[in-house]
Amino acid sequence: MNRLKNILLVVTFILISVGGYAQNYTAKAYKFYQVKQFDSAMLYIDSAVVSIDESKYSKTWQLRGVVYRNLEAKHGIKYREIALQSFLEARKVDTLNEFKLEIDSYIENLNVRYYNDAVNNVLSGNLEKAEQPYLTYKQNYWAYLDENKDFNAIDIQFYNALASAWFKRNTLVESGEKKTVYSNAIRYFGKVLAIDSTNYSANYGIGISYYNQGADVVEGMDPFSTDIEEIDRIQNESIELFKSGEPYLKKAFEINPNEKEVVEGLTGIYYSLNEDKEYEYFQQLLNKMEE
């Protein structure tokens, strides 16, 4: 909250200073900006940035950035991109790095909107569109803020959340769509494991996604039209899925042996694989956990 106040103070200071330059378009734009008439402010600031006299000032470009940033809600994400380009131009013309901190702050706070879009898409179930804004956020961060920024921890959090959201969708879709849902869950959990192979959630998530797919295949058999040869084919398919899930659940168990969900998963997998020795071991473990 304090940081927000500081930023507002900086913005106010800059804009008051802009007025001091007595640049026609910029000053007029600023007046409209002050009274929140952003569309009118945009008309003037767009003229300012093509004016040879005014476009050389960093503050002109900064004002354009904040005007367009305010117009995003009304006109769409294209205005966010223009705002970002304006802040970048503001930095470019700020050859003495006079406004570096302020401009970096503008860029960072504008860029975080991409991250927020990604998170909102996950939370609202708009999963197909969740990853792209997250990638844009990261690319912008590396390109404009810190090329050495380490995103591993955030990647793990984001991709686990996205994968989990895909996983949860399996209860909402028709059986024909489940394969896509699980494939996406496995793909995004896989991105977590590429960063940290010992991540419990991702190992469990992939394991249980395969297990559920195997069980879905079995439960999806038509009780009347599935003949003896088809049963054989379906057994091959389901066994392959159960076997695919097994190493991930075993790894999750290795990481967190006290988690009941993973013991349940392994009990289910070994039961379905007709591996009685392992099944009985995990069933007993599960029974103890439930005591």
């Binding site: 927000l4 998170v119 379905s272």
Partner: peptide
Amino acid sequence: ILGALILSGFSSGVSTVNAGMRDTRSI
């Protein structure tokens, strides 16, 4: 990050769905 939203509760999200054993043998 100023204003960044937080993704929470994801780690337990997977386990709430279809966990536990499904009786494929009987089918």
